[in-house]
Amino acid sequence: MTVQSTTVAKTGEVDRSWHIVDATDEVLGRLASDIAVVLMGKHRPQYTPHVDCGDFVIVVNAEKVAMTGKKMDARHYTWYTGYPGLKLESYGDRQQRKPEDLIYHAVRRMLPKNKLASQMIKKLKIYAGPEHPHVAQQAEPLKRVSKKIAKR
């Protein structure tokens, strides 16, 4: 009888690579779920839940991300300021004011709710335009099967 061994990743042994994603005309939820999988390391065969096995992800053109239907105007971010009542801001207004926040919050909410999530989200670099300062890392394009928004 042969004994099968299972490899468990350890914190110092994980080799991290860099991926780049162009968010032009991408659907926000589909983009965020693909990024979250890479940040967690679930795309690797040596994935271990209690170890941060993920890679770095650079997102460019965050200002051009889209949503299907009329969700940009219909959905809202809400937050409490300390005063009576809540603050409301539609996704469209948030995209004009802080385009990086749409992708950041979508990805952050898809990560696990534990202490590793703060380590994982630090590996996400989001930029509103096409320029980024991580040229030296030689990021490779993230392989995705996604649907883009058709221009109407």
Rank of each mutant, 00 (worst) to 15 (best):
T2C: 04
S5C: 11
V8N: 12
V8A: 08
K10C: 10
E13K: 04
E13L: 10
V14R: 03
D15Q: 13
D15R: 09
R16G: 03
W18H: 08
H19M: 08
I20D: 06
I20E: 04
I20W: 03
D22L: 00
D25F: 13
D25M: 09
D25S: 07
D25C: 07
L28A: 03
A32S: 13
A32I: 00
D34K: 09
A36T: 01
A36K: 02
A36E: 01
V37P: 12
M40P: 04
M40A: 09
G41D: 02
K42A: 08
H43T: 05
H43F: 08
R44Q: 13
R44F: 04
Q46M: 11
Y47T: 01
T48M: 12
F56T: 01
V59R: 04
N61T: 00
N61G: 01
N61W: 00
N61R: 06
E63N: 06
E63F: 12
K64N: 11
K64V: 02
T68W: 07
M72S: 08
D73R: 09
D73Y: 15
R75V: 05
H76M: 12
T78W: 13
W79P: 08
Y80A: 01
G82C: 08
P84T: 00
G85H: 03
G85K: 04
L86M: 12
K87Y: 14
L88E: 13
S90K: 05
D93N: 06
D93V: 01
R94S: 10
D101P: 05
L102N: 02
Y104I: 00
Y104M: 07
H105F: 15
A106N: 06
V107N: 11
R108M: 11
M110I: 06
K113Q: 12
K115T: 05
K115L: 14
A117Q: 11
S118A: 09
M120P: 03
I121G: 08
K122E: 15
A128R: 00
P130D: 12
P130K: 07
E131C: 07
H132F: 14
H132T: 01
P133E: 00
A136I: 05
A136G: 09
P141A: 11
K143V: 14
V145R: 14
S146W: 09
K151T: 08
